[in-house]
Design a protein around this nucleic acid. Structure first.
Lengths: 207, 207
DNA sequence: GCAAAATATGAGCAAATTCTCACATTGATG
DNA sequence: CATCAATGTGAGAATTTGCTCATATTTTGC
């Protein structure tokens, strides 16, 4: 066994000099192609070309096309987890309304930053072999949000965390996809729904 | 010009006896493959095989694989529009809370009935050539919901309709996908968020 | 510098995929 | 029935795609 036994990478680990650049270029190219052309546009040859790398190099680091997608998914989840962690730490001890507000802004920011990638990847994930790490990260994300809600006395925190995440993402993504650029206005609208879900009613009625 | 000039079907229109069965079998098979195996599993040969039809027949009605997907999307949208139309008629004159409750249940029912298809198809739609009919149907759906909200004095009804649809779908779909079967409980949770969004506050606070 | 290890290359093979076309079968019509 | 149009068939041509491997280049350790 070499020193790569800790990594869930199915093939050779690159960690040495320019290899990392090759590895990164492949992932970046794959992400780009996926968001631009959709799942059917993703071919290994095209990825290699876009990455400015030979097809042979691609297969040095990824045993298959699916492995590239799987790694993209892991990357995205790790990023999400990091963002949520930072957010959770930031709102520690603050009132729930504030925490919710921050969470919504963070989610919008995250989706803007990863433009459309989440959609496609989540979709593809369903038809990929079960990945332990990805699943573990998803659990951690739910747990973090659940802990946050629990600390404010929300009932069934895990259930609520699941709903809250979907509520925020479900509203934010289509709006952003359709070209909405007033993030603050969007956040305020989502906030109304989120606070309603949590039973923290905003004052005035629109109707 | 023959009598098929009214249909946006790029190839021959089937309307005659068993031809319709073939046509339907192809669409059904494609839908099944898409939901089971995802976008990458969809190949014309496989569709023909699953439909119990020769590959030649498939190309008699669809000029390309994309045309099949496009038709599936149109089908789904038409179904959505019909469901919403029925729902809107049913809640005519009823209070907004009731209308919202019905809309949420209808949406859940619709998603249960079309299991996962919406996700994949919506995703693929983004990378397909612009389809006038599909777009028109989407507009009609928004308009219907907007009219409903407007009749109850909701401000910016089109904006609100867009948000409401995404809120409901965004919360319902992941829950159903994860195996939730208590539709009523799910509907009640979504209702909290929806009413919160609309400013129709529910009574008690959970926190 | 030099050998050995790490990394990169890309022609090309096997399999998959899209789609055509010449022909067979079925159904309708008088 | 006979005829013709509508429908169905599937071998296979043309292309694409996933991936390998023999070889070339670069980097590292000494």
């Amino acid at each position: 066994m070499t020193r790569l036994d800790h990594a869930p990478l199915p093939k050779k680990s690159p960690r040495q000099a320019r290899a990392q650049a090759t590895y990164d270029a492949i992932l970046q190219a794959a992400a780009h192609i996926l968001t631009e052309g959709g799942p059917t546009a993703l071919t290994t040859n095209l990825v290699a070309e876009h990455a400015g790398v030979s097809i042979g190099s691609l297969y040095q680091y990824f045993p298959s096309k699916e492995a590239i997608v799987a790694e993209l998914i892991r990357d995205l989840r790790r990023q999400m987890l990091d963002d949520i962690r930072g957010m959770a730490a930031f709102v520690e001890g603050q009132p729930l309304r504030f925490a919710v507000a921050r969470m919504i802004r963070a989610s919008i920011h995250h989706h803007v930053h990863t433009q459309g990638r989440a959609e496609v990847l989540e979709q593809l994930e369903h038809h990929l072999p079960f990945d332990t790490e990805t699943e573990a990260i998803k659990t951690q994300i739910i747990d973090l949000v659940a802990a946050l809600l629990d600390s404010h006395g929300i009932e069934q925190p895990r259930h609520a965390a699941f709903d809250m995440i979907n509520l925020v993402v479900g509203m934010a993504h289509p709006a952003l996809h359709v070209g909405e650029t007033d993030y603050e206005a969007l956040a305020l609208r989502i906030e109304r729904a989120a606070l309603g879900y949590l039973g923290l009613n905003t004052s005035g009625s629109v109707a």
